[in-house]
Design a protein around this nucleic acid. Structure first.
Lengths: 277, 277
DNA sequence: AGATGGATGCGTACGTCGTACGCGTCGATG
DNA sequence: CATCGACGCGTACGACGTACGCATCCATCT
């Protein structure tokens, strides 16, 4: 009887998994099963509707976690902090959540479920992708902290919400009779761009929260004086670009502008393949 | 005399900065100055060439840190670990490095400096951006751990290497007589895409290292049986795409394919503005 | 030669984190 | 009324970043 940890779903032995965070499940299949069974066995003591606030549930824990992450970033999320928020002991959380990793995964699911997927078919593929892009953009605006998690999800974890998101984006090409591999390539280009911009958005949000906490106010525009990025000299082109235009950091405008470029690129490839639509 | 921390460069008071990691410098200007002075005052005791290995220097520390991060990921990087690698006491590192945050910043600089920027002017803007893209791609292949840092750098930190990278990419448009703001928009689109793909690359690298550490071998293709992403059902389009083609996870191929799309998009916008080149 | 003072190495200690373990208490069921 | 599983949580351990202060070394100046 060694101290080897076991998969929270199938109970099989689970290697310590190198130096990274300890794993909770042994495979994506196991994680998916855990989600399913959790949803099925929900009504335990309280008949589900009753949420007076006394009883500790997964939903309450996840909600509290999301509140903390929204307000103060993923760095501020600790099990002790969530427990304090709920007025319970730290270890009580582990009755409902397998690990911190698991909690964050559940938070991502819940946060993504909050922004609905479009349910009507798009007018055309371009409209479909634009809708999908703005949905994601909205998501990252509300919950910037989901990005670092998304970035690891594709291979290591399984996320129903993320899969549904991809599925929805892919459905934009439904009528076009594309090769599945081509549709996948387009979606990959599209999703990579959106996530790439999200990186900047998240970095901005983080920086803004930090400077807000430090100075008590949103220091949106610091003293660009002696900021090396704004001084011509080492980076003349960059400096010119940073000073130019209204505000190169109007991320929303940059996002839609770049998105148009991405869609134009896809359109060019579609035209080359004779699938105009 | 309070316990308030001070900026490592200008010595000014530095607010605790919310919940995030404690800051080391009070502004990008201060960080840039710290880099400059550090480079100037380098020859202290040992005349610089002598690197028998006995003496502790910033370079040795940074090299050790990079080695650890390359081999085991940023999660495995701790001050104690770096010190052990160098056979010194943990706190000795702080004589040469202001904080862990500072160390990571220096590691990013060193890692990026290792892959040279092109020094000849590009044949045309497309060639210039392709060169830049492949340089970044090479970078993320060698040092996946720099991405989470890059993602926060734009606003909160200043990185000479990153600025030089952007400057180099911008130079692709040199002959075209573009508005600075337009060139910036193109670069933003381009960089966002590259970073977005890098997200997937990094996630893959992380997952691979974990499964390698766990099973002792690179489990490149797990049992796709009962993997919910490969089973038609909940995600039919996605499942079809995942099964389709040779290997949808040939990231290098996906990268160049998507890059072509991005460049086509930029070309379309250039043509619309009558700047064909 | 001896004194001095800054630069350097590092041991100890504090407060944080995730979480293993085990005890106590409850409520539903026999 | 006895029992037993589900639940809440107090304590403790080994990681982490790093503040602080002492010891040592060497270049310099008397």
């Amino acid at each position: 009887m060694s101290v080897q940890p076991t998969c929270a779903s199938c109970g099989e032995a689970l290697e310590p998994a190198g130096r990274g965070r300890p794993r909770t499940y042994c495979s994506r299949a196991c994680q998916a099963r855990a989600y399913r069974t959790r949803k099925e066995e929900a009504p335990s003591r309280v008949p589900e509707g009753d949420d007076g606030g006394r009883h500790l549930t997964v939903e309450r824990i996840v909600r509290a976690g999301i509140a903390v992450a929204d307000a103060e970033g993923l760095d501020a999320l600790s099990m002790r902090r969530v427990a304090m928020e709920l007025g319970t002991g730290t270890m009580s959380l582990y009755r409902h959540v397998a690990s911190k990793d698991d909690l964050v995964a559940l938070m991502v699911e819940a946060a993504m479920a909050e922004v609905p997927l479009p349910d009507s078919p798009p007018r055309n593929w371009r409209h479909g992708l634009e809708r999908a892009a703005h949905r994601d953009w909205d998501l990252y605006h509300r919950h910037p902290w989901i990005l670092p998690r998304v970035m690891v999800t594709t291979r290591a974890y399984f996320s129903p919400a993320l899969a549904a998101d991809s599925e929805s984006a892919l459905s934009a090409f439904d009528g076009l009779d594309l090769e599945p591999a081509d549709a996948f390539r387009y979606m990959f280009l599209f999703a990579s761009y959106v996530q790439g911009v999200a990186l900047t958005l998240v970095g901005d949000a983080e920086a803004e929260r930090q400077s807000k906490a430090a100075t008590g106010e949103g220091a949106k525009d610091l003293d660009h004086a002696q900021d090396p990025l704004y001084e011509p000299g080492a980076y003349p082109r960059l400096a010119r670009a940073m000073r130019a235009g209204a505000d190169p950091w109007d991320l929303d405008a940059l996002f839609v502008s770049g998105l148009a470029g991405v869609l134009d690129g896809i359109a060019a490839d579609l035209a080359r393949r004779g699938k105009g639509a």
